[in-house]
Structure formats: C-alpha cells, structure tokens
C-alpha cells in the first residue's frame, strides 16, 4: 500500500486539555479518506496539525516521503498539501476570477512584481476561467466573492485550491450548512477533482461520507476509535455507541446497512 500521508502518535495538548491524542493516521495515495466523529472529537485540530497551522505537542507527520513535522504552513502548501477551511475561505472583496488568479499567481510567478501593472495578471485569465468552468462558476467570474451564495463560495474555494494543482487536498466540512442541491453538486465535484489526487475530508454528513470515501477514520475525544470502509465502520459497536444520541444518522445507516 502506497501511503502519502502518515502520522505517528500525533498529539496536541492545550493547557492540560488533550485535543488530539496519539493519532496514527495512514492515508493511501489516490484515495478519498474521510475523518468523522462527534463534535469536539479533534477533527479540525487534526487538520490544523497536518497543515502546520498548529504545532503538535508530540508525534510526527510524513507527507509524500518527507517529514513535515517542523515545517511552516506555507511550505507544506508548496509541497502540494493544500487545505480548505471550515468557514468558507474566499477573499471577499476580490472578484471570483481574482480569487482563482491569486492562487495561479503563487504557483506560476509574478507575485512580487510591484512595479508592473496588475494588467499582466490577464495572462492567467484563461486558466482561471477554465477552473471556474470546472466548478460551474464561469458565469459568476466578475462578481465579488463575498456576494456569492454559500454553496458557490465552497465551489470557488475548491477552484482556488485546484489552481495550485495540489497532490493532496484537505477539505474541512465541504458540505456543512448546504442545501440538498448544493450538497449533490459538491459531492460530484469532489469525486471529479479527486481523480489523480488524494483527498482527506472532515465531514458530518454521513450520506456524503458513505457515497464518497474509500476509507473512514472515526475520532472521538482526540483518539482513533475505528478505521475501515463505511460498511465496516458503521457496524462497529463502539462507533455506534459513540454516535448514539448525538447523531442519529449513523444508527439509521446501521439499521439498513
């Protein structure tokens, strides 16, 4: 098995509170890996550790054969491990097109050119439009990103991330707070962009997880409770116990699965 991202004994303590405790995670190259668990299980902390927005108290992280434990977040992104955020991360006062262009600019250069007119960024327009078309936003290119409806912001975020052509994408709750219609669109989008990449996603909507993820890791109280495919994990009595009462969806899934 070809592992692209591996953590060993990953631990994060905040002033006596252990948010993530001894997590050893292995993400297979080319897979869509789901990270689920009740609220406060440490999923987002885990994401922040993996992308170096937080420094782990203990443990190590390897990405694509390289130890990234001591790296800075921007360096990790440059290696091709690019994250999204739980609260939609767009640049609200930039247009939709400019949002994508900012990412292209980083990947392709010119980001320090202070003496040139920003009209030279027009050279990235064609690529930016193609990426927007990919996520169905090409007709919105000239709107300010802050004016997009929520679901479209998530799509824009994915287009911006794709502009970097990342090896691996980390998506933090890509369908949170979305209408059914938007959820379906994002699921289709994630499945499409996952071609040739690895995706690790935190997701609350278990129907999405069931439909998308090859492997699922269940976290509770900062620890790995179970790991496997959806069918296996959802039959695990410990998982059911952890979820029961907090999220009826999994017990429902358990009943018909």
């Amino acid at each position: 098995m070809d592992t692209i991202l591996a953590t060993e004994d990953l631990t994060k303590e905040f002033l006596g509170f252990t948010a993530v405790s001894g997590v050893s995670l292995n993400v297979r190259r080319g897979s869509i890996h789901g990270l689920i668990g009740p609220n406060g299980a440490g999923k987002t902390t885990c994401f922040n550790l993996l992308t170096k927005f937080l420094q782990p108290t203990r443990g190590s992280i390897r990405f694509d054969g390289r130890d990234i434990t001591g790296m800075k977040p921007a360096e990790v992104a440059r290696l091709g491990l690019v994250r999204s955020f739980q609260i939609s991360a767009v640049f609200p006062h930039l247009t939709v097109l400019e949002n994508v262009r900012v990412a292209l600019q980083r990947a392709r250069g010119r980001s320090f050119d202070f003496w040139r007119s920003d009209k030279v960024l027009g050279q990235y327009d064609a690529r930016a439009r193609a990426l927007l078309e990919d996520v169905g936003l090409h007709t919105h290119a000239h709107l300010l990103a802050g004016e997009l409806p929520y679901g479209r912001k998530r799509a824009l975020e994915i287009a911006t991330t794709l502009a970097l052509d990342p090896v691996m994408m980390l998506l933090d709750e890509p369908t949170a707070g979305m209408t059914h219609e938007d959820v379906d669109r994002i699921v289709a989008l994630v499945r499409r962009v996952a071609q040739g990449r690895t995706v690790l996603m935190v997701e609350h909507n278990l129907r999405v997880v069931e439909g998308l993820c090859d492997t699922i890791t269940v976290l509770t109280r900062g620890r790995v409770l179970a790991e496997g495919d959806y069918a296996g994990v959802s039959r695990n009595p410990e998982v059911v116990a952890a979820y029961l009462g907090t999220d009826p969806a999994i017990s429902g899934a358990q009943a018909h699965g």
């Binding site: 977040p73 992104a77 640049f91 262009r101 980083r106 050119d113 202070f114 040139r116 920003d118």
Partner: peptide, 27 residues
C-alpha cells in the same frame, strides 16, 4: 502602481484573509 500591481494583489489577498493566503502557499 504598487497597490495595483501583481504584488499589490497579493497584499490585498493577505489583508482580506491571511490564513487562506498562507494555505495557498504564500510566505
């Protein structure tokens, strides 16, 4: 010119959403 240069565009992005700029690989 600086404000409306490719560099100025990055500055604007950083001011709007610094964590996102970092996550795109900007130092």
């Amino acid at each position: 010119r600086v404000v409306h240069s490719p560099f100025g565009q990055v500055l604007k992005a950083i001011r709007e959403n610094e964590p996102r700029a970092i996550s795109l690989g900007y130092r």
